[in-house]
Design a protein around this nucleic acid. Structure first.
Lengths: 340, 340
DNA sequence: GCGCTGGTTGCAAACGATTGCAATTATTCT
DNA sequence: AGAATAATTGCAATCGTTTGCAACCAGCGC
């Protein structure tokens, strides 16, 4: 029961010290639970602190200790400015991150940035002195900038795609492999003329596309046509409709960069009277909850989001501890439902 | 182009002052763009700062100014601990909040808490000294605690339900009215024996339920049966299935507390061979993107999330400026699609 | 030439918690 | 009992930035 009655406003450790009849230093140590201070005075001080609802100022503490116990999480909105944060995948990842970080005693500072608008979005965050480390969710089209920063700043982990020889520590799914799996599934289901739905300027998506291309090339099928689209649902719908109309009859399998896109595509297919999976096979990516609920249920490539979040936090903490860490690329998993 | 070559490590304002040949105070003023310092030296200092990629330490600044430019956003996970953060509604709201706050020059500190586990989750956050104000997303079952805090702490705004005479400033939809609209729609579509799907210990949901009950009572229909369920998709599915089986034939209209729940319900209905809307009418709440994509598309009660986020931030800023503010309750809007 | 006004700059004291070191007291050993 | 050791506590500097106040300079009018 923190106070609110005792008007004595115990705001600082010094106030508390005065009440307890000891020095500020002792209070600090007592609250930190250090064994240096007598168990008796320690519990007494803690009792007084509780009684007055006192909490040490994190700013002051952070300044002195040069450690804030806050991890920055930044979402660069590079290749699709608007609305990407509402992307279910990132949001779910964010939720898990919050859990993991909390469990480790860290707070989470969230920042969305539009890299195009300010070039040094990452340096600004890091240099602010407010965070002990940073997790970047998605490389977007900022690969180079992230690489630059990685050279001089260790406590950073990035969610995204792993590229041979890159210098920043990344956690992510093997997108290329996932792309291969998706294409192979489409082909196994009978499709031969494939399309990729999504924006390949995002490096993760590009890798998925490349993976699919691998499979197609290996089997001697015609190259995959790419249907460029934004991620925001409103714009995407129209774009998909147009793509579908443009390629009517010339494609029979679609690999969507994202379940969200796949779901959108599914509704468009329905409204254009194209039967799935008979006339068109469809595979998504992520295995979001929505994949289970579309009609028909979506065949997709699963990323383990919870494991990803755990990996991100784990690696970041190890880096904070001074360890050198490898990147972590996790295998995707094909989930066959009914669209391919 | 921030440096990384000039190894001179310009970390503090004092370093910068030495280089510029002025005093730290002048540097501080120059970087703050204060007109007191000569325009010439000011631009020179700013140039040097840029050249060395210097950014003032936010912790120190925050400590001195007693202002952190950070707003806390906290999600209490009271009535359904697990996975609620992935709830699409909250996540979307969070995204908009991030946008709004950024635009106003604030950073966002995210914290999920499980109130059951620590009673003073809110005081802890507020007392940490790390945030200038707090936005609470969802009252969950913590109404009383929030009321307590509101008495002694002004810069707080809560997303949730407005109750007559409450003391904390809240932004939200008129849930009761929304509930009425939902029930009326179900009834207009031909349903007479209604059920409410969701957990009524959450106050927002309780209000929606109450609103529906209003309509039903006014029309002399049998009272609404409530189908208690959790929010996390995995558990909810089974629970819904069981409810549906238990009440087979005894209900013909379902008001789901949430679109997410409604979507889940829809798939369960399908798998149990119950036709929508013929054998069962269904109305959701929120109008999330998914509502447009279910089959058939979901009739639902819309909340304007973007406007909500704007309202939250606007009111919070006004309160930070010392203003007294009223709560903001926004009207919901019925969106008729195909499930009722 | 002297005092004044304005415009710039420097000085030094905050902000609140932490921590190495010294000082104090309590304990133990010879 | 005296001295050495250990256990507590206090002192004061420190983290990096901001800001009230004083100091300084140039230029001005008298």
């Amino acid at each position: 029961m923190p106070d609110r009655d005792t008007k004595g406003a115990v705001r600082t450790i010094t106030d508390l010290a005065r009440i307890a009849g000891v020095s500020p230093g002792t209070v600090s140590r007592a609250l930190a639970g250090k064994s240096l201070v007598n168990i008796e005075t320690r519990t007494k001080i803690q009792a007084i602190a509780r009684e007055h609802g006192f909490r040490p100022n994190q700013m002051a503490s952070g300044l002195r200790r040069q450690k804030t116990d806050v991890i920055g999480v930044v979402i660069p909105l590079g290749h699709d400015t608007r609305q990407q944060i509402s992307d279910a995948f990132f949001m779910t990842l964010l939720g898990h991150l919050a859990d993991e970080l909390t469990r480790e005693g860290y707070d989470l500072m969230l920042r969305r940035v539009v890299p195009g608008k300010d070039a040094d979005w990452l340096d600004r965050f890091i240099g602010s002195g407010m965070i002990d480390g940073v997790i970047v969710i998605g490389q977007s089209d900022q690969f180079d900038r992230i690489e630059d920063v990685a050279d001089g700043y260790d406590p950073m982990v990035v969610w995204g795609n792993h590229t041979e020889g890159q210098r920043h520590c990344v956690v992510g799914t093997d997108n290329r492999l996932g792309g291969r799996m998706a294409a192979e599934r489409l082909i196994a289901a009978g499709a031969t003329r494939l399309a990729f739905l999504g924006d390949t300027t995002a490096i993760e998506f590009a890798a998925r596309f490349a993976g699919a291309q691998d499979s197609v090339a290996r089997l001697g099928l015609p190259p995959i046509v790419t249907l460029r689209t934004h991620l925001s649902p409103d714009r995407a719908s129209e774009e998909i409709a147009r793509h579908l109309a443009d390629h009517a009859g010339t494609i029979d399998g679609i690999f969507a960069a994202t379940d969200t896109l796949a779901a959108l595509c599914l509704t468009e297919l329905r409204s254009q009277g194209i039967a799935v999976p008979d006339d068109m096979k469809l595979v998504g990516f992520d295995d979001l909850p929505i994949a289970r609920q579309t009609v028909p249920p979506l065949t997709t490539v699963r990323q383990d989001i919870a494991a990803g979040a755990q990996g991100l936090v784990d690696l970041l903490l190890r880096r904070l501890a001074g360890e050198e860490t490898e990147s972590l690329v996790m295998p995707p998993q094909l989930v066959v439902r009914a669209t391919a």
